[in-house]
C-alpha cells in the first residue's frame, strides 16, 4: 500500500467501469441534493416561513420547491415562487434525486437477485422507471 491513489491512472483506479462511476455519482449527487435542499430552505425563510408556514410546509418546499407545496400556507403572494427559475430548480432536484434513487434500487436488487438474467431485467426496468418518473415529474412541475 505504498502507491498513492492520486498517482494511479483513472483506469487503475477503476473509474473506467460504469459501476465505479455510479459509485462516485451517488456520493456527488448526495452533495448536490444537500446544496439544492439548503437553497430551498433559505428561500422558505425568505418568504416568511417563521410566521407564515408550519414545519411540514417548510419541509415540503425544501425537499421539492414546487409552488403547489406552499399553496395552503399564509404566504401572501406565491406567484414569484412559481417562476421558470424555480421550476428549473425543482426539475434539477427531480433529475438528480431520481438518478440517485433508481441506482440505489438497482444496488439493492443486485444484492438479492442471484441470476444474471434477473439482474438484466432489473436493470431494464430501472431504466424504464427512471425515464418515466423524470418525464411525469417534469410535466407536473412545469404545468403547476
Amino acid at each position: 500500500m505504498t502507491t498513492k491513489s492520486r498517482k494511479l491512472s483513472l483506469k487503475q483506479r477503476g473509474l473506467t467501469y460504469f459501476e465505479t462511476q455510479m459509485w462516485l455519482f451517488t456520493r456527488l449527487s448526495a452533495l448536490a441534493m444537500y446544496a439544492l435542499i439548503l437553497f430551498g430552505l433559505i428561500a422558505a425563510l425568505v418568504m416568511g416561513a417563521r410566521n407564515q408556514m408550519d414545519f411540514a410546509d417548510v419541509m415540503r418546499w425544501a425537499f421539492m420547491p414546487n409552488v403547489t407545496h406552499i399553496q395552503s400556507t399564509n404566504v401572501p403572494d406565491v406567484a414569484p415562487w412559481s417562476s421558470v427559475f424555480w421550476k428549473l430548480t425543482a426539475i434539477a432536484l427531480l433529475f438528480v434525486a431520481t438518478a440517485h434513487g433508481v441506482h440505489g434500487l438497482v444496488v439493492i436488487a443486485d444484492d438479492y437477485i442471484a441470476s444474471a438474467g434477473g439482474r438484466k431485467i432489473a436493470r431494464l426496468l430501472s431504466i424504464v422507471m427512471m425515464v418515466s418518473m423524470i418525464a411525469a415529474g417534469a410535466v407536473v412541475i412545469w404545468t403547476s
Binding site: 434513487g101 433508481v102 440505489g104 434500487l105 439493492i108 422507471m129 418518473m133 407536473v140
Partner: peptide, 17 residues
Amino acid sequence: GGLGMAIFISVHILSAF
C-alpha cells in the same frame, strides 16, 4: 429509508400526474 422514499416519491409523482 431509501426504499421508503423511493416508493413514496414514485407514488406521489404518479398521483400528481
